[in-house]
Design a protein around this nucleic acid. Structure first.
Lengths: 237, 237
DNA sequence: CTATGTGAACACTTTCACAGCA
DNA sequence: TGCTGTGAAAGTGTTCACATAG
């Protein structure tokens, strides 16, 4: 049974590839902005800091997206990556904590594209509650429970001080969030069915300092992807 | 020639381990805060979302840090991880862009520990230049060139809008920065000797949405570390 | 008897090299 | 002819299982 370009039925996408897809995507958007009608595995690799063979393997796991002898069409690639990552769905995102970090997140491009949209924001500071941030009225965090997230799978983002993190996580889970992205520097726990990831803004800095010490040479000539998060389905404290 | 506990001469630390060390460290600090005098590979693994054998392998690459039958001393572990990551040195960090993100970074714990300290901050907005942020007077970005970073290896952090990123990077490199951490959503280029890493706050969100779609089961029972950055020694545009 | 440290088996990723199609 | 797509080889990383030290 023949299929149109870009189709591929449920071949598993390797974990390492999933982690690189968002990076290719950013580059593709960039290339498109610069007016490129075509690109190649070599160009993408150069810009992403990975080698061309890896780019081809990664992209081929999504389907047959290129044209031999010619290259790839950025527009098609972007669409296929979006689809693979689930960006063709609609993901409500709830952000708790409207300090500098929370505001930065809510206003960032990444939080209002790829299928995400910020649907509610919370804080506890009376000076902030009631104010408007990115077009949304900030509600008091005590009212997280009033959210009805149970319908669509929703993501809760924690951008509070460390001391408030666990309480906020509990409230978000109680309201039906099925994934938590924790920016607060504190280990938290969730029930087993909730997806949990941490982001630590200084981890990249620490990894950098390791390679700057010269204790090890920076990995390979063109180097790999690195980490800032841990995922733990059902972590314990 | 016998050595004291925790010593190990220059055995190469695997890349994957380097990426996990900052996570163990955060957990260890947490355990210490809670008053733990001892911990185990199992406890650390549970909290980090990785399995116990991996924790032991990771830690043993730093030396013989544990006590058989007993476990690990958090304090010793923290010190050894710090040393391995180069946190026993002093790393000046320069942050450009005092919007919400820049302020969040400058005020974050991670940017003033582990050997890092923010030594200067810049912006272009006349309303911000001259003001004080985290104890530092914000200088105009035109004056980045006046920095003399050439002495100590310094890290430049870019937290500007995308359109300003490349110019800021050039200025930082010109001033002698030997590493760039780019939070702006734009691909930039640096000379070959400069270490470059990207951080994209929404990449974790995108990876999460992949696993939420149910197109693939979340990796393993206890799951691995993930990415937000790309490093590219001497990238081209 | 407990929990580390580690060889050895296994699994996953990356890279190579080239066949195959435009 | 040029660049993708992909088996097969090489290289890393993870997990197992147990000897070993406290």
């Amino acid at each position: 049974m023949p299929r149109g370009k870009g189709e591929r039925r449920s071949r598993r996408i390797p974990e390492a590839t999933v982690a690189r897809l968002p990076i290719y995507q950013r580059i593709l958007v960039e290339l498109q902005r610069l007016g490129a009608a075509t690109t190649s595995s070599e160009e993408l690799g150069r810009m992403a800091g990975v080698n061309a063979a890896k780019v081809r393997k990664d992209l081929s796991s999504l389907g047959t997206l290129g044209t031999r002898g010619t290259g790839y069409d950025p527009r098609l690639l972007i669409a296929q990556i979006d689809r693979a990552l689930g960006a063709d769905r609609d993901w409500p995102v709830v952000v708790v904590g409207m300090g500098n970090l929370g505001r930065a997140l809510v206003n960032s491009e990444g939080f209002s594209s790829h299928g995400f949209h910020v649907s509610a924001v919370f804080d506890v500071d009376p000076k902030v509650v009631g104010a408007e941030v990115a077009g949304l009225v900030v509600r008091h965090a005590d009212r997280i429970g009033e959210l009805a997230l149970a319908g669509a799978p929703a993501v809760g983002v924690v951008a509070t001080p460390a001391s408030a993190a666990q309480g906020v996580v509990d409230a978000l889970v109680g309201a039906g969030a099925c994934a938590i992205l924790n920016f607060a520097p504190r280990v938290v726990t969730v029930p087993a069915h909730v997806l949990l990831r941490y982001v630590d803004l200084s981890i990249e800095l620490q990894i950098m300092s390791f390679y700057l010490t010269g204790r090890a040479p920076e990995p390979a000539g063109l180097a790999p992807i690195r980490s800032v998060g841990v995922s733990q389905p059902g972590a314990a404290g």
